[in-house]
Amino acid sequence: MTKITMREAISQALMEEMDRDPAVFIMGEEVGVWGGTYAVTKGFFDKYGADRVKDTPIAENAIIGGAIGAAMVGQRPIAELMTINFAFSAMDYIVNQAAKLRYMFGGQFMLPLVIRAVGGGGRQLGATHSQTPDAIFAHFPGLKVVSPGTPEDAKGLLKSAIRSNDPILFIEHATMYQVRGEVPDGEYLIPIGKSKVQRPGKDLTIVTYCKGLELSMKAADELAKEGIEAEIVDLRTLRPLDMEPVLESFKKTNRAIVVEEGWKSYGVGSEIVSRIYEEAFDYVDAPIIRVAQKEVPLPYNRTLEQAALPQVHDIVAAAKEVLK
């Protein structure tokens, strides 16, 4: 095992897959000469050249639409959205085209496409550049939505995504590129659509993913000081959603909270809570609590921004509440 950052993990995954398969190329805003606005593709332009690291105009429809077309004719493009907030400019291509073209034409087309997008708040970028709209995209059958919370998962899942024959939205978090974690030496893959227990425990289940995992792990440390053992289930993929580890954990603990960075209403947490009630109602010992972002456009001011985002202490409080 080696300890690397999230940025290095994603960068390694891209590089390994580009070395492995000449059909893989990258296209997006500032991915080439600039090296990626989050420096994920730093050095790629020099190594692979302009053909394989394509700087695009600021034109999200052309980026995602173009990547879809290239995928349909046999290439394996990785399209980068500088931030997931720009996905709204390309909404038609993500939900109306990528998610539907295969099905609508009776399975004739294959779309081996990865859309990498950076999401999340906490960097004082203001309301339009700080969103966590993951649930919106997970709503659409035909799309797969992956959002890792550790370097190990980021690398293994991204490599699987690039090898997949389906359109995948791969969501990274803007504040997590420096997060360090151990990754296995040598090549490895992590399957898409598998949730994972990231920390075992017996008193309650915390269901989360991406930034929520980082916060929940810290919260679990706090809770452990008071003798509370939280089990953390990391969804890793939002669609297709793997409920097995969640239900297995819940049937053991009978109490759960769900932690996400996006807004609470109509969110990932709403889906998880419903599924638990539908599939494990007899095991419920306490109402399940959702910890999520306050229902406001995210403000610029740091204090206000942090007040809107879910915090470690919110998770600790929710855990204690559900254990009452």
Binding site: M27, I64, G65, A67, I68, G69, A70, M72, Q75, Q97
Partner: peptide, 18 residues
Amino acid sequence: IVGGHLPIAAGFAVGDQY
């Protein structure tokens, strides 16, 4: 979708150019 297939057409050509 009116006009929706135009960027996809450009994408076909990106694939062929590649």
